[in-house]
């Protein structure tokens, strides 16, 4: 694997392969020595043009557990705020000797630009670009679902027949997009629930079913409810829904709704959560919530991705 730009590029076989490597990485997390020497001498640059805590820390932890050197770069307080272009930043990183660049950028497609340019030789991992994709989040969500369903017997399994309901701001959510492509290629049935104003144009062409009513979706039965964050920072123009209280009443996972879910139904949230808006505290803290598992699985999944991008002659997984 040379780059990881999108879950849409991954075949079912490749996706299961990444999740299986992540299982091996997860086993390492439970050992006495939680560090592997695999990427000794390699340099991973976290290039973050947007705010992030968990993704950046997760990539940093993953790289360090594989013994790579990590350089963190955030646009705030860097030459980017003085007007440096992506090209110049990339060439600077190439000159420093980066082997992998983990990039988060507000513009959809920025990682693709880096990967296709000849500015830098390094492998590119997309850590979220605009409203396009966030592939490692999709992978860690798939990993978490598989682990909850199959436990230690997860290796080699797909998500055939698993019903996943994704609720909320689909329009602005790269997490939703990465999950839709990945989960459906793993065999899951994805159902989207959102106010009509927060569904993208062209959603009819996605391999999913679409509804507007959360209660209907809960009554129809689902194995996973994935709540998305209401992204206030991308909704400056407003007008997507009348006000937060109405959104919360109609599309939030409140106490009444979470109590109606069967005990085995997972509640997922990519974080950071707006408690009381899209998810109630009781839902977030209940045993069916996978929020913290998602964070710790994120490290294992990112270790797997870094390993696959950095090992081999840039060849396929054998």
């Amino acid at each position: 694997m040379k780059h990881l730009l999108s879950t849409r590029d991954l075949t079912r076989h490749e996706a299961i392969g990444i999740l299986d490597v992540a299982e091996d990485m997860a086993d390492v997390q439970s050992r006495e020595v939680r560090k592997l020497p695999t990427l000794r001498g390699r340099t991973v640059v976290n290039l973050f043009f947007e705010d992030s805590t968990r993704t950046r820390i997760s990539f940093e932890a993953a790289a360090k557990r594989l013994s790579a050197d990590v350089i963190n770069f955030s646009a705030k307080g860097s030459s980017v705020s003085k007007g440096e272009s992506l090209k110049d930043t990339a060439q600077t990183l190439a000159a420093i000797g980066a082997d992998v660049v983990v990039i988060r950028h507000p513009a959809s497609g920025a990682p693709q630009v880096l990967a296709q340019s000849n500015w830098i030789e390094a492998g590119i991992i997309n850590a979220g670009d605009g409203t396009h994709e966030h592939p490692t989040q999709g992978l860690l969500d798939a990993f978490t679902i598989r682990k909850r369903l199959h436990g230690t017997a997860s290796r080699g399994r797909s998500l055939d027949g698993v019903r996943v309901t994704i609720v909320g701001d689909i329009l602005h959510s790269r997490v939703a997009r990465s999950n839709v492509w990945l989960l459906t290629s793993l065999g899951a049935q994805v159902h989207l629930v959102a106010p009509a104003t927060l569904l993208p144009v062209g959603v009819a062409n996605w391999p999913v079913t679409v509804g507007y009513d959360l209660d209907e979706a809960i009554d129809a039965g689902t194995d996973v409810v994935m709540m998305l964050r209401i992204q206030a920072e991308r909704m400056m123009s407003g007008g997507f829904f009348p006000n937060a209280r109405e959104y919360s009443r109609r599309w939030g996972l409140d106490d009444a709704r979470v109590d109606r879910l069967p005990a085995a139904t997972m509640v997922m949230h990519p974080g950071p959560m707006n408690r009381g808006l899209e998810i109630s505290s009781r839902a977030a803290d209940s045993p069916r919530s996978t929020v913290l598992e998602q964070v710790s699985n994120g490290v294992s999944v990112r270790m797997a991705v870094l390993y696959l991008v950095l090992s081999g002659e840039r060849g396929e997984l054998s």
Partner: peptide, 21 residues
Amino acid sequence: LDVTMYRDDLSRNPTRAPSPT
């Protein structure tokens, strides 16, 4: 005992999938 992650030839050979320990 899986040794994949401890090899010194990872960048010379095609990517190996690790096995469980």
